[in-house]
Amino acid sequence: MAVSVQQSKGSKKERSRPVAAVFIIIGGLISLVLLIGLSISYGAADIDLATVWTAVFQFNPDATAHQIIQELRLPRVLGAALVGICFAVSGALMQGMTRNPLADSGLLGLNAGAAFVLAICFAFFPGLPYMYQILYSFLGAALGAGLVYGVGAVAKGGLTPMRLILAGAAVSALLTALSEGIAIYYRIGQDLAFWYAGGLSGTKWEHLQIMTPWIAVALIGALLLSKSITMLSFGEEVAIGLGQRTGVTKFFGAIIILILAGAAVSVVGAVGFVGLIIPHVTRFLVGSDYRWIIPCSAILGALLVVVADFAARMVNPPYETPIGALIAFIGVPFFLYLARKGGREL
């Protein structure tokens, strides 16, 4: 190391945009809290923000407004935020690990797999506690992913992004058809209907209590892996050359993805595109370092789903517009845009 170091000049400029990332994390959290407040206050019965505040922090079980908030609206909006975090972070991890810009738990069959196994649960084990449902949901996500990679790998020429997407579409269509078949045959259509459309109206405290620890552990894991994910996004050979145990990274990465996607599907159903859109937007804003992409994706994902859920209730009241349809409304054009670009930039 013969050359002397000029540490002082411009050592901030030479790195990619952590300032933007910090701004997104802080600004995003503030917006998220405000949006959650707004989302709670508007609905079939409008409740003013002051009441929202007291309902959350000085709960009075005798007040109807407080009960609506505590029993219906608060768990629902928190569920929306968690689901957004899950889908967005799982999408970011998938895109980084596979260097596939079109990776998303919806497009690669994880969501359909989880929904399929949950349909089986509803049909054969009605009344299965949510604590177990979520485990089956993880299993289903693994099944979906396994089928998609299996189908994709059989084809000659390896797993190109487009081939995986095609395999994902085929496997998703099959699993969705099977789920619907099960729903019709066992007359559980009512239970399942909200899922294919995607909906958060059934979210209860019980769900949040069970899913939150899973999600928390998965998120911590994702942050611990984030540096390794960035290295994998340079290519596996580079990561190996730098001394990364890529097998370990991929193994834990895959488990985290399955937990996040499975947990989200178990609450909201097979909602796609959050995991596709958010990581791309985040990457555009904060650059390619997954140490920033993962936390920023989490916050932006939560914002997107909270807004979408809010919109789902406000578009055509008192009816709910399916949240899956709303997100697909922006997700599909975005997908077409990425597919057209060929996803070169990852």
Partner: peptide, 28 residues
């Protein structure tokens, strides 16, 4: 990796990183 560094044939960096960012990963 402390004794041997490898430059693969078709290394391709994702966009949005500066030179400093990428080079700093060599310290891993």
């Amino acid at each position: 990796a402390k004794k041997m560094a490898i430059l693969p044939q078709s290394a391709e960096a994702p966009s949005g990183l500066t030179i400093f960012d990428l080079v700093s990963y060599g310290r891993f």
